[in-house]
Simulated assay, not measured.
Amino acid sequence: MIRERGQQGTEAAMEKDYSVRMGFVDDYICAICDEGGDLICCDGDCGRSFHPTKPTGEASHCDTLGLSEEQLELPEFLCENCASKKHQCFVCGELGSSDQGGGEQVIIQCNKRGCKRFYHPECLPLDINNLPGDSCPMHECYSCKKKHATSKGNKTTGKTKGKGTCRKKHATLEGNKTIGKSKGRGTWGMDLVLCRRCPKAFHRKCLPRKINGGEGEIKRIWETAGGTVFYCRDHEMVENLRSAKRNHIKFREEKPKGATENQSVEDGNK
């Protein structure tokens, strides 16, 4: 069944911690084009939403899944990745088996609530399944973590205010009982903004400059009813679309010869 993503439930979801909010953004926008509208949600492990048919994706120039009306009537929907248990690594973009019962597991899923990103162990040198959470890079500020590593290498850790990781900063805010005095978790500037194309996250106060466009820069961030949509500078923006290049989704190992658009969206840049 097609499910329209709108304003309902947004405020309640945004009041919870950011890990829930990141899941809500995934629920609200299409995984292919990063726009909202009439979407279908995968009932599998990925939990992503998609424009299911060509008409539902016309406004956002989305390649869509190209489903038929008969497929929309099925009681359960699984995207090709979840049906085949072949998911993409959020670092390299290549597929790997997530079937834990099918021998050696070559791709693992972050177990942080609301995240659902997949990774090759060699791309992310952490065994996420053996950790309680907070291990995926999406759950720490990339800028703070980088500064912390630099100051540690220079043996100045602890000498400069503000060089701690985001987890330490959140702990300080909670210890000072400042939670609840502003929107979200801690202060507004400490909210994490998550890149849609790679495992980088930034506190709002740590976001790169000029991401709002202007002076030859293309805008990289939008506030939507479902949350913040953001692309870091590692990804090329498409000027006539409100997104980075749409070449990030891969359902199959290789695109068969003569395949139609709805069989693969690897070439989904228009």
Score class of each variant (00 low, 15 high):
residue 2 I to Q: 14
residue 3 R to E: 14
residue 8 Q to Y: 02
residue 11 E to Y: 06
residue 13 A to L: 11
residue 14 M to T: 08
residue 15 E to C: 06
residue 17 D to F: 06
residue 18 Y to V: 14
residue 18 Y to N: 15
residue 21 R to E: 07
residue 23 G to Y: 07
residue 27 D to L: 12
residue 28 Y to E: 10
residue 30 C to E: 03
residue 32 I to H: 07
residue 33 C to I: 05
residue 33 C to Y: 02
residue 37 G to I: 11
residue 39 L to M: 03
residue 45 D to N: 08
residue 49 S to T: 13
residue 50 F to C: 05
residue 53 T to H: 01
residue 53 T to E: 09
residue 55 P to N: 08
residue 58 E to T: 13
residue 59 A to W: 11
residue 62 C to N: 00
residue 62 C to G: 00
residue 63 D to H: 05
residue 64 T to C: 04
residue 64 T to N: 03
residue 65 L to I: 09
residue 66 G to E: 05
residue 68 S to F: 02
residue 69 E to C: 04
residue 70 E to D: 13
residue 70 E to A: 11
residue 72 L to D: 07
residue 76 E to K: 09
residue 78 L to E: 03
residue 78 L to W: 05
residue 80 E to I: 09
residue 81 N to T: 04
residue 84 S to D: 11
residue 85 K to T: 10
residue 86 K to R: 15
residue 87 H to E: 04
residue 87 H to C: 13
residue 93 G to P: 01
residue 94 E to T: 09
residue 94 E to Q: 14
residue 94 E to F: 13
residue 96 G to L: 06
residue 99 D to H: 00
residue 99 D to L: 07
residue 100 Q to V: 15
residue 103 G to L: 12
residue 104 E to C: 10
residue 105 Q to H: 04
residue 107 I to V: 14
residue 108 I to L: 09
residue 111 N to L: 05
residue 111 N to H: 04
residue 113 R to E: 14
residue 119 Y to G: 01
residue 121 P to G: 00
residue 121 P to N: 00
residue 121 P to W: 01
residue 125 P to H: 06
residue 125 P to S: 03
residue 126 L to H: 13
residue 126 L to R: 12
residue 126 L to F: 15
residue 128 I to E: 14
residue 132 P to K: 11
residue 133 G to S: 05
residue 133 G to D: 06
residue 133 G to Y: 07
residue 134 D to P: 01
residue 140 E to L: 03
residue 142 Y to I: 05
residue 143 S to M: 14
residue 149 A to K: 04
residue 156 T to R: 06
residue 156 T to L: 12
residue 160 T to H: 06
residue 162 G to M: 00
residue 162 G to N: 00
residue 163 K to M: 15
residue 164 G to C: 07
residue 168 K to W: 10
residue 169 K to S: 09
residue 173 L to N: 04
residue 173 L to C: 13
residue 175 G to D: 05
residue 176 N to R: 09
residue 179 I to A: 02
residue 185 R to A: 12
residue 188 W to F: 14
residue 188 W to K: 15
residue 189 G to M: 11
residue 191 D to Q: 15
residue 191 D to V: 15
residue 192 L to A: 01
residue 192 L to T: 02
residue 194 L to K: 09
residue 197 R to D: 12
residue 197 R to Y: 11
residue 201 A to C: 05
residue 201 A to V: 06
residue 207 L to C: 07
residue 208 P to D: 04
residue 209 R to G: 11
residue 210 K to Q: 13
residue 211 I to M: 03
residue 212 N to V: 08
residue 212 N to G: 09
residue 213 G to E: 03
residue 214 G to A: 08
residue 216 G to D: 05
residue 218 I to A: 15
residue 219 K to L: 05
residue 219 K to V: 07
residue 222 W to D: 03
residue 226 G to I: 15
residue 228 T to Y: 04
residue 228 T to C: 08
residue 229 V to S: 03
residue 229 V to H: 01
residue 231 Y to F: 15
residue 231 Y to G: 00
residue 231 Y to W: 14
residue 231 Y to S: 07
residue 232 C to L: 08
residue 232 C to D: 06
residue 232 C to P: 00
residue 243 S to Y: 04
residue 251 F to D: 11
residue 251 F to P: 00
residue 253 E to H: 04
residue 253 E to L: 04
residue 254 E to R: 07
residue 255 K to F: 00
residue 256 P to E: 02
residue 256 P to D: 01
residue 257 K to I: 04
residue 257 K to M: 02
residue 259 A to L: 01
residue 260 T to V: 10
residue 264 S to A: 10
residue 269 N to V: 15
residue 270 K to E: 10
